[in-house]
């Protein structure tokens, strides 16, 4: 019972420290705020906006941005069919975030599971998995995605599958390297000596060590997947109207660059902000999980901490 209480207090201590380190970094707070905002817009935006986003109004064609008299939805201008750019961005947010979250989620779970298995068992399983990862890694991801998406019909699911597959090797290698290292440690040997099953060792002993690394990596991957998905849809492969994402919006604007710069520019700014936020949070996570670096966040004492560390 005492052990349980101790664990409990230890845990709350770690979490309050995390929050402190979070607020000590204004950039991270800004990044997290933006990401939460985008996710909220992605969830609720399209339902609120409804048909207004795709309503074509040729009189509004290329309405210039930053003018309020045509209504707030035209604050960022209108595209070649008079659709308000702002509302198109809201619709795109849902697609882009859905693709990013689903593909990072699936590839990180599959990749790190395979990586743990590969690193734990070694031998031929390890060899085959690494070789496959090498082959997938050797072909540039855009080329692979181009070829595969040409076979499959354009849809969000297929885009997620392709992006997921091309990103699996990253997690596999990271999780494998760490598992291979952790496997040699005493606590794993102890568990083995006590007769724990392979499954139990992998889930209870190794996974807790590997998960923080994968989490940091996954956050960084959110940024690269957002960029990769946008590149594909920009090239006109992967999605089709009425589904829009941010990459398609840039592609739409490309043809009218000379007459209406804002149609291509604003979606790009949104992509940059979102990808940047994800990398900033990943950077922060890495710093927080590194004992040598996280002191930096605590060293500027806004509130004096007790010495009992």
């Amino acid at each position: 019972m005492t052990l349980a209480t101790e664990k409990q207090t230890n845990r709350t201590f770690v979490y309050s420290e995390r929050w402190q380190m979070f607020f000590a970094s204004p950039m991270t707070v800004a990044a997290a705020t933006w990401l939460v905002f985008v996710i909220l817009v992605a969830i609720f935006g399209p339902a609120l906006v409804g048909d207004l986003a795709n309503k074509q109004a040729l009189l509004m064609r290329f309405a210039p941005p930053f003018q309020l008299e045509k209504g707030f939805q035209f604050i960022l201008g209108a595209d070649s069919l008079g659709r308000p750019v702002l509302l198109q961005l809201v619709m795109g947010a849902q697609t882009s975030m859905l693709i990013a979250i689903l593909s990072v989620g699936s590839s990180s779970v599959i990749g790190s599971t395979l990586g743990i298995i590969s690193g734990y068992f070694g031998g031929w399983v390890d060899n085959i998995l690494l070789r496959i990862a090498d082959i997938v890694h050797t072909i540039p991801s855009i080329l692979l995605a181009l070829v595969v998406l040409f076979i499959l019909d354009p849809s969000i699911t297929n885009l997620v599958i392709v992006l997921g597959i091309t990103r699996i090797p990253v997690y596999l290698r990271t999780a494998r390297a760490q598992t291979a290292e952790v496997r040699q440690r005493t606590f794993v040997e102890v568990a083995q000596a006590m007769g724990a099953s392979d499954w139990r060792i992998m889930t209870k002993e190794i996974a807790p060590v590997v998960i923080p690394t994968v989490r940091t990596l996954a956050m960084l991957e959110v940024a690269s997947v957002i960029l990769a998905a946008a590149s594909l849809t920009f090239l006109g492969i992967g999605l089709q109207r009425p589904t829009v994402d941010w990459g398609m919006l840039v592609a739409d604007g490309q043809a009218y660059l000379e007459t209406a710069w804002f149609v291509a520019v604003f979606p790009g700014i949104v992509i940059v902000l979102t990808a940047l936020s994800a990398s900033l949070i990943s950077n922060w996570l890495r710093a927080v999980e590194d004992p040598a670096q996280n002191i930096l966040f605590l060293s500027k004492p806004k509130k004096k901490r007790s010495e009992s560390k």
Partner: peptide, 17 residues
């Protein structure tokens, strides 16, 4: 970090612009 977050195709378009 910003340089790593800019979509390649968008940078190309904006630099053309």
């Amino acid at each position: 970090l910003i340089a790593g977050s800019v979509p390649v195709f968008w940078f190309a378009i904006v630099s053309i612009l």
